[in-house]
Write a protein that binds this DNA or RNA. Structure first.
Lengths: 148, 148
DNA sequence: TAATTTTATTTGTCACAACAAATAAATGTT
DNA sequence: AACATTTATTTGTTGTGACAAATAAAATTA
């Protein structure tokens, strides 16, 4: 245990990189004068994939905390990007629906992500990228198994 | 722009993985009944590397926000893990010093990180690991350049 | 030296993550 | 049907991230 060095721990490396990346996307979103956060946009993304998802489904697909999704959706409602309706079939379920205001900015924000991605992947070959994605997915699976 | 898929965006992949990993370390720390958060421990780590670092130095080495380091250090002080002294040479600078209570748990928490790391890297060869680290560092540099 | 600018740190505010506890509406059991 | 259990969602609390504004002590400049 004498050789422990946090900076070599993959866990810490990825967490620092994630923070840097978030800072970068936030900066790009601000430069483009868009009124939304990356997390709010992630929720919108899953709704564009399938409109009317329940809060719980959004949580499990995005791997976010259930309670936090509730609050992100709340904000999206306040901003007029989505609406929420109680399901008729099951009164416990609330479904979330995209509103036109969200559609209007869809492409703008996709461009922010692409911009961010282009900067991050500068000088990294297609091959390296797919190697990277492959290893990241392996790690993701390893951890997902542990977390039930 | 019709082929946009957030799940392929490296940015988002890393951010989700980072969240999973944080959840996992938290779980391991809880299982070991340790009273500390990963971020607090990151601050301690930099102090073990060099005791008496200023708040600002901790912030830049850990790539954390200056203001947030102030608050993390505050908590570490309340918990008795570190102390803070105004520098004699420069009255603007506050130096942070490790206290014995922190040393006592050093090895325990290092083990938590190692445990987490072992799970994450299961079935990932040494070679893949160094490839991964190399690519992550490239990305880190790309972004660091953009963020000044 | 006084006034201005820079640098280090703190405080305030908002968004989000984690987790526990509270609701509320099914479902299952007796 | 009445009661307990499960499931979906919300509310509460704490910790952290980002950023802007405030403070305080150099360092610089007039």
């Amino acid at each position: 245990m004498t050789d422990f060095n946090l900076e070599n721990i993959i866990n810490h490396k990825i967490s620092m990189l994630s923070i840097l990346m978030k800072r970068q996307v936030l900066k790009i979103i601000a430069e483009n004068k868009l009124d939304i956060t990356p997390e709010q946009w992630v929720v919108l993304f899953y709704l564009w994939q399938e409109n009317g998802l329940s809060v719980g489904e959004i949580a499990s697909r995005s791997k976010k905390d259930f309670a936090n999704v509730t609050r992100i959706v709340e904000k999206l409602i306040k901003m007029g990007y989505v609406s929420k309706k109680k399901s008729r079939k099951d009164g416990r379920i609330f479904q979330v629906f995209i509103k036109p205001k969200a559609d209007e900015m869809k492409e703008d924000i996709q461009n922010c992500w692409k911009q961010a991605s282009d900067v991050a992947l500068k000088n990294i070959s297609e091959e390296e990228q797919s190697t990277l994605v492959g290893i990241l997915e392996k790690i993701e699976n390893n951890i997902a198994l542990e977390l039930d």
